[in-house]
Design a protein around this nucleic acid. Structure first.
Length: 323
DNA sequence: ACGCGTCAAGTACTC
DNA sequence: GAGTACTTGACGCGT
């Protein structure tokens, strides 16, 4: 059983390579009052910088054998802002985006976006749904422009609970029909740390035929009475059956005893190992997204730390085998 | 060079 | 119903 590891957005080992530099709307507005073109040029400059750093990160990933990566959701500053609708960033940045996509395809990398938590599909507020759809289309459009097929996914949460989980799950199904198919084809759903448990999300995924991303830290924070990872695993694996992709999990460790929801700098291998054993029973290769404050550094360390565990053979800086 | 307030968003909680 | 916490990397100002 082969396990690939990945990390989120930025590197702690590579200096000055942020893919998330921004221009806040406030700063943009102030500049635009005096000179609208100069303001937009600043946004363009930062965007090119982000995309260039993205490519540097992908090269860094290649050099270290990292095949799994999540893009920052902030690579296009103000890309979805209603006041910048006139800006054709997709057209202007097409060469840069194509170059990223080509590099990803050539090196058989798996990439995702994780739209921010204010993108909410199950919201009861029409305006929020509308903005969420804009954001989902934006992310799906970036992947499409990169020339990546629907194997490049968008990882989402179900959304709010609104004091009635089953009604809110049902609202997700209703709102789902309003999401453009370009986005729908890419969306995968993840269990969260407060509201929707693994079995809640699996129920929805099975209804809508979506793959599920299992976050084992969120499972620990939030799971139903008697709900176990062993029971969730086969359904989770099955949700990926028709995608041609490995099932994917997220792993992280709690920041502290007091603050169990926030992410620690590093990942305790003991938080992952029991799940590896579950996956070995199913003998299924899978991918692990490391969510830790120390980003790639934490991922490299986790892989090294796993060496101490029985059955683990480390094959690369971000690759292991469980025999 | 560093620290602190600010920014951006939606939800959930408190009073 | 208003205000605040949550989250997170980055900006920008003050020292």
């Amino acid at each position: 059983m082969i396990i690939r590891f990945g990390y989120v957005a930025m590197s702690m080992t590579m200096q000055n390579a942020s893919p998330s530099k921004t221009v806040t709307f406030k700063i943009y507005s102030k500049l635009a009052e005096k000179d609208p073109e100069a303001a937009l040029n600043k946004v363009r400059r930062v965007t090119r910088q982000n995309l260039n750093n993205c490519l540097r990160l992908l090269r860094h990933n290649k050099a270290h054998g990292v095949q799994v990566y999540r893009f920052s959701s902030k690579i296009i500053p103000l890309g979805t802002h209603p006041e910048l609708k006139h800006w054709d960033y997709m057209g202007e940045m097409e060469p840069e985006l194509k170059e990223l996509g080509q590099f990803i395809r050539e090196n058989k990398m798996r990439v995702t976006f994780h739209p921010d938590h204010f993108t909410v599909i199950n919201t009861p507020v029409a305006d929020v749904l509308e903005k969420s759809i804009v954001d989902l289309s934006h992310h799906a459009g970036l992947l499409k422009t990169m020339g990546l097929n629907t194997c490049a996914k968008l990882v989402m949460h179900v959304g709010g609970g609104y004091k009635d989980k089953s009604a809110s799950l049902e609202r997700f199904r209703q709102n789902w029909s309003q999401v453009p198919s370009e986005a729908r084809e890419r969306i995968t759903l993840e269990n969260d740390d407060k509201i929707y448990t693994g079995s809640d999300v699996l129920w929805l995924c099975e209804q809508l035929k979506l793959p599920m991303v299992l976050d084992i830290h969120h499972y620990r924070c939030n799971h139903g009475h008697g709900e176990t990872l062993s029971e969730l695993a086969p359904r989770f694996i099955n949700s990926w059956q028709e995608t041609g992709l490995n099932p994917k999990i997220h792993v992280s460790s709690p920041k502290s005893e007091k603050n169990r929801l926030s992410h620690h700098d590093y990942v305790d291998p003991g938080d992952l190992y029991p799940f590896l054993k579950i996956m070995r029973e199913h003998n299924r290769d899978f991918d692990v997204m490391v969510e830790a404050k120390q980003k790639d550094l934490a991922m490299f360390k986790l892989v090294q730390d796993l060496k101490a565990y029985p059955g683990i053979k480390v094959l690369g800086e971000a690759l292991a085998e469980f025999v």
